[in-house]
């Protein structure tokens, strides 16, 4: 099953006006983190926080709703969030740590929980993993080249980046909107992404992304008991508007198809690597 195990799947959006403004899609990731923080499920969360260098975020241990809002929005660039796990536990002294991340980040946390070679007493401190969908990611130089050479927008003037319907869309802080076909960005994709098999972050407690839902809404998939309970309590408190996911072409069909494509790309890349004698992870 290319979407992994999940208990439910639906289309959701936050009712919070601030998050609607700053979030990437339905505001699910940030709203869930804030709710988890306020209900004591977590004591802090690792997020991708903007720095002085535009679009080069750093891992940050957020312990207030304001900090979580400050980190909302997608940065299509590498951000080594897992490096902050020990900082959260040892320097911030958190016993219940939350984290957001694509497949690769959440999967690495799960591997760490299963085989904690260099992660003493961290496995039981991981209280919540929010997964975000991901097709691929870019190095900082890669994304800078994309927006400056393809979109012709100075990276310092980029307000928002988004990928939708085969286009990478850049909105500048002057309100200008430039689209280029995602295809053109492929030269800049991080090489390691090509063996990544998982679109929907199947090892997270609850996953979310834009594919499968209309603009401004998100697809949400609770997976574990932690994810289900957190989502249910947020819905009960009126934090989310929910509706069934569209089973058709732009909904479930599209999500399954793109997840299958990613799975197949990984299988194909692994086979090609093996053929020329390159090792794959064992």
């Amino acid at each position: 099953m290319v979407l992994g195990k999940y208990s439910d799947i639906m289309t959701v959006k936050t009712t919070d006006k601030t998050l609607q403004k700053y979030s990437q899609d339905g505001g699910i990731a940030s709203a869930l983190l804030i709710h988890a923080l306020e209900t004591g499920v977590i004591e802090g969360a690792i997020v991708a926080m903007p720095t002085d260098e535009p679009w080069n975020p750093e891992p940050y241990v957020a312990t207030t709703p304001e900090e979580i809002v400050a980190a909302a929005g997608t940065k299509y660039v590498l951000c080594p969030l897992n490096n902050a796990l020990k900082i959260a536990a040892r320097e911030n002294g958190l016993d219940k740590i939350g984290m957001v991340g694509m497949h690769c980040l959440t999967y690495a946390v799960r591997k760490m929980q299963l085989y904690p070679f260099g992660a003493r007493h961290l496995p039981n401190k991981m209280a919540l993993l929010i997964g975000i969908f991901c097709t691929e990611n870019f190095s900082y130089t890669g994304i800078k080249a994309i927006v400056e050479e393809l979109h012709k927008v100075n990276i310092e003037h980029v307000q928002k980046m988004d990928v939708s319907k085969g286009k990478m869309i850049v909105t500048s802080n002057m309100g200008e909107r430039v689209e280029v076909p995602v295809k053109l960005t492929h030269n800049y994709v991080q090489p390691g992404c090509y063996i990544c098999p998982d679109l929907t972050a199947r090892t997270a407690d609850i996953s979310t992304g834009s594919i499968g839902s209309p603009d401004g809404w998100s697809t949400v998939m609770p997976r574990t008991k932690v994810g289900k309970d957190l989502f249910q309590s947020a819905v009960d408190m009126g934090l989310f508007e929910t509706k069934p996911i569209d089973p058709g072409k732009t909904g479930m069909e599209m999500l399954t198809k793109l997840a299958q494509n990613k799975w197949d790309r990984s299988e194909k890349t692994r086979a090609e690597r093996a053929e020329i004698g390159l090792p794959n992870p064992f």
Binding site: P80, L81, N82, N83, A84, M112, G118, A119
Partner: peptide, 26 residues
């Protein structure tokens, strides 16, 4: 060197001597 890194920072987290710095995702 095998084109496998995804810049997650788990290596830096695991290092007991903080010998690893993450810069620009590597």
């Amino acid at each position: 060197g095998n084109g496998l890194c995804i810049g997650c920072g788990t290596c830096a987290m695991a290092c007991p001597t903080r010998a690893i710095d993450m810069a620009y995702g590597r």
